[in-house]
Design a protein around this nucleic acid. Structure first.
Length: 521
RNA sequence: GGCGCCAUCGUUCAGCGGAUAGGACAACGGGUUUUCAUCCCGUAAACCGGGGUUCGAUUCCCCGUGGCGCUACCA
C-alpha cells in the first residue's frame, strides 16, 4: 500500500515537466452537443497500457454487434490519458485496430480514418477536458484540491488503521477565500463536489435500476495535477461530445457509474443508456489471468484461431440469443443481437470450448482456405523450404484438416511428410517394426509399389498394390498396414495410409521403405 | 472493512409462475474405420440454504451463505 503511494508521488512530480506548453493553455472551445438524433452511436475506448486483452475485444464485439444491429455507428477512441512511463505503451496502438480488422470489424470512426466527432485520441482533446473542469469549478460543482499526495497517503493510512472506509476527507472543498489565495500558486487537482446527501439512481440495461447513497461516493479526481484528465472526466466529456447514445462496457465500471451520472448532471447533459456486460473469469471463477492461459488477444491470432471462431466464441461470452445453439455466423449474430441477451452473471472463459469451436470452423472452411492459412505456419517452422515443399504442403494439408483444432497444429500433424526421413517414435518402432516378420512384409510390398508408375501415383493404384500383397501373404491387413505406416511416417497415427502415400509421392515412399528395410538387415 | 453485482448438470448457455428442467463442451459407452481424428448413436449429470408471496415456485420478494468487482492524480 505504501509502495503504491510512493509511486504515485514520484509520478506526480515527474510529470510536471512533461506537459506540452499548448496543453496548459485552455483555448475557448464550444463543447459539442450530446445525443441528439435517434441514430445509435457506440464506442470502444481502448487504453494503450499493454497488449489488447481478450476481454476488451469482447467488449468491442458487443458494441460493434449492437451498432450493426441498430444501423448505428461504431466509434473507436484512444484513451491515452495515463502517461505514466511504466504503463504507457505507444507500440501497442497500431495493433488495436488491426486486431479488430482481423475479426472483420471496421470502425466507422477512429483515429486513423477520422470522422465528424474527432479527434479520436484523448491526448489531442485536452482543452476540452480543461474547459469542462473549469466550467464545473465556476458552477461550484467541482473544486481545486491542493492536498499533497503525501497528505492523502497519510490520511488513508489513518483511515485504514481505524478501520474506516478510505477516501478523501474533502479538506479543500471548504477552504476559505483567504486560504485559497495563499495556495493559488500551488499544484492542484480538480475534484468533483459530490452531493453530501441523497442518492444517485440510474438504470442499467442488464442489471435494472441501481441506486447508491451519495454519502458513499468519494470526491473523485477529475483533472490531475499535470493538467490531464482522469478516465471519469474524459470519458464523460467525450461520450457527450461524440454523441454516444449507449455505453456498453465491462461490469468493473458498474461501481463508478454513479460518479459518471453525477458528472452528466453537473454539466446538465443527458446520460447515455448504460449497459454493463459481465466480467470474464477463468474456469476456476477467478479473474481471467495468465494462469488460465493466454489473455492477450493477438496470441489467439498467432496460434491460428479463425476470425469466425473468435467472433462467435467471444460474442457468446456473456451474451445469448436464447436459443439452444452455439454456432453462429457473423450475420446471424448481428441479426439476433440485443442488449437484453447480455447475461447478468459472470462469463467463464472456457478455452476447451473455443478450441472445439475453432475445429468446427476449420472443418467448415474450404480446403483452399485452410491451405492458404496453414502454409505460413509450415514456412515459419522451417518445414517448407522450396517450391516443391509448397506443392507437397498443398497435397498434405487437406489430409489433416479433420484433425486440426488450431492452425498451428498443422506443423506437428504434417512434419513427417517433409525432408528425407521422418523422426521415428521409439514406441511405434518397437511395436510394428522390430520383428523380422515386419521387414519381410515390407520387402514383399516394396516391389509391388515399384511397379506403379511414377505418375500418376494414386490412392487407388497404391491400395490395389498393397492389397495384392496382403492377399498374397494371407495375413490380416492391419499387420501390413501398421508396419508400413510406421516405416513411412515414423508414427502410429496419422491420415489414411494410402492417402498418405499418394501425397508423399512414389520417390519418397520407396526411398523411406528401402532405408528401413536396409537398416533392419 | 465499506459499497455494488451475481448464484441452474463437472463447465457453460437456455428457461423469464404450471415442462419428463433443454442445448453445447468435457466425461463415459457403442457404431463406422488400416491407426488417430472426423462423423453417427447413446449414458450419466443441476435448480446454494432458510423464510415468505401464490392454488402453485428453478422462476417474484427478504435474509443468510458463497463468488466476483470497485474502493488511485490507472483505465
Amino acid at each position: 500500500m505504501g509502495l503504491r503511494f510512493e509511486k504515485a508521488v514520484t509520478r506526480f512530480r515527474s510529470q510536471q515537466a512533461e506537459i506540452p506548453q499548448e496543453v496548459m493553455i485552455c483555448t475557448q472551445h464550444e463543447l459539442r452537443s450530446g445525443p441528439t438524433s435517434g441514430a445509435v452511436r457506440v464506442r470502444y475506448p481502448p487504453s494503450p497500457t499493454g497488449a489488447q486483452h481478450i476481454g476488451n475485444v469482447r467488449t468491442a464485439i458487443l458494441n460493434w454487434l449492437f451498432a450493426k444491429k441498430m444501423g448505428g455507428r461504431f466509434i473507436v477512441r484512444l484513451e491515452d490519458t495515463d502517461r505514466d512511463p511504466s504503463r504507457y505503451r505507444a507500440d501497442v496502438i497500431p495493433d488495436i485496430l488491426s486486431n479488430l480488422r482481423y475479426l472483420g470489424i471496421e470502425p466507422d470512426e477512429d483515429w486513423e480514418k477520422g470522422g465528424p466527432a474527432g479527434p479520436y485520441i484523448q491526448s489531442e482533446r485536452l482543452y476540452l477536458y480543461q474547459n469542462a473542469a473549469r466550467e464545473l469549478i465556476e458552477s461550484g460543482k467541482a473544486y481545486r484540491c491542493y492536498c499533497t499526495p503525501e497528505r492523502i497517503a497519510a490520511l488513508r493510512a489513518e483511515q485504514q488503521q481505524r478501520g474506516e472506509p478510505t477516501g478523501y476527507d474533502r479538506h479543500c472543498r471548504y477552504l476559505s477565500d483567504s486560504e485559497l489565495e495563499k495556495l493559488k500558486a500551488q499544484p492542484f487537482v480538480v475534484r468533483l463536489a459530490v452531493p453530501l446527501e441523497g442518492q444517485t439512481l440510474y438504470h442499467d440495461e442488464v442489471h435494472g435500476d441501481i441506486s447508491v447513497e451519495n454519502s458513499a461516493l468519494d470526491d473523485q479526481v477529475l483533472l490531475k495535477s499535470n493538467g490531464w484528465p482522469t478516465y471519469h472526466l474524459a470519458n464523460v466529456v467525450d461520450d457527450h461530445s461524440m454523441g454516444i447514445t449507449h455505453v456498453i462496457r465491462g461490469e468493473d465500471w458498474l461501481p463508478s457509474t454513479p460518479k459518471h451520472v453525477l458528472l452528466y448532471q453537473a454539466f446538465g447533459w443527458e446520460t447515455p443508456k448504460w449497459t454493463h456486460a459481465p466480467l470474464i473469469l477463468g474456469t476456476d471463477h477467478k479473474k481471467l489471468s495468465k494462469r488460465h492461459g493466454d489473455t492477450e488477444f493477438a496470441e489467439y491470432i498467432r496460434k491460428g484461431y479463425l476470425p469466425e471462431a473468435l467472433m462467435n466464441f467471444l460474442a457468446l461470452l456473456g451474451w445469448s440469443s436464447g436459443e439452444d445453439r452455439e454456432l453462429y455466423s457473423v450475420e446471424e449474430l448481428i441479426d439476433r443481437f440485443s442488449l437484453e441477451g447480455i447475461t447478468p452473471h459472470p462469463a467463464i472463459f472456457d478455452a476447451n470450448k473455443l478450441i472445439w469451436m475453432n475445429g468446427e470452423y476449420i472443418r467448415k472452411s474450404s480446403p483452399e482456405t485452410i491451405i492458404e492459412l496453414s502454409i505460413p505456419y509450415l514456412r515459419k517452422s522451417g518445414l517448407i523450404k522450396t517450391e516443391e515443399d509448397v506443392e507437397l504442403a498443398k497435397r498434405v494439408i487437406p489430409l489433416v484438416t479433420d484433425r486440426m483444432k488450431t492452425l498451428d497444429e498443422v506443423v506437428s500433424l504434417t512434419d513427417f511428410f517433409f525432408g528425407d526421413m521422418p523422426k521415428y517414435d521409439p514406441k511405434a518402432v518397437e511395436k510394428w517394426l522390430n520383428s523380422s516378420d515386419s521387414k519381410t512384409i515390407l520387402a514383399k510390398i516394396l516391389p509391388r509399389l515399384k511397379g506403379i508408375a511414377e505418375e500418376p501415383f494414386t490412392v487407388h493404384l497404391i491400395e490395389a498394390a498393397v492389397r495384392g500383397g496382403i492377399d498374397e501373404m494371407g495375413i490380416p491387413s492391419p499387420q501390413v498396414i501398421h508396419p508400413l505406416r510406421v516405416a513411412l511416417t515414423g508414427r502410429m497415427v496419422g491420415p489414411g495410409l494410402f492417402e498418405t502415400m499418394a501425397a508423399m509421392g512414389k520417390a519418397k515412399v520407396l526411398s523411406r521403405l528401402k532405408a528401413i528395410i536396409a537398416k533392419e538387415h
